[in-house]
């Protein structure tokens, strides 16, 4: 099987994640979509690692996971804080910082 199929799958998942970020208003769901995009990237990294025959891609994917974990922690804390003050997790309602 052509290993490029993994990359195509990765592209599809990334695009779906992007659509999710753009159309969903619930901050938590948006966050999940971001995670999906990160996972799609990880899949691509793992595939690259396999195509090139070295482990560097896997290591990068590992770092992506770590950073994603950190991001989730801080991001969810921010969402909690916003929810506490605005009683809403909709990103559209947090739109005061504008023109």
């Amino acid at each position: 099987m052509n290993p490029a199929n993994y990359l195509y799958l990765s592209a599809i998942l990334f695009s779906l994640g992007a659509v999710g970020v753009l159309v969903r208003r619930n901050a938590i769901v948006m966050f999940m979509c971001v995670e999906l995009m990160l996972n799609a990237c990880n899949l691509a990294f793992v595939s690259f690692s396999r195509i090139n025959g070295n482990l560097d891609g896997q290591v990068i994917a590992f770092f992506v996971m770590v950073v994603a974990a950190a991001e989730v922690v801080v991001g969810l804390a921010i969402i909690m804080t916003i929810f506490r003050t605005r009683r809403s997790a909709s990103v559209d309602e947090a739109n005061l910082l504008k023109y």
Binding site: S49, F62, M65
Partner: peptide, 29 residues
């Protein structure tokens, strides 16, 4: 694809920890 460590980490870290965190926050709000 020959990345068993990452696969395990994915299950443990993502589906295990991160997603549970998500659900936890969902319960909260």
């Amino acid at each position: 694809q020959g990345a068993p460590f990452l696969g395990m980490a994915q299950i443990v870290v993502y589906t295990g920890a991160v997603m549970m965190l998500f659900l936890f926050v969902l319960m909260l709000i």
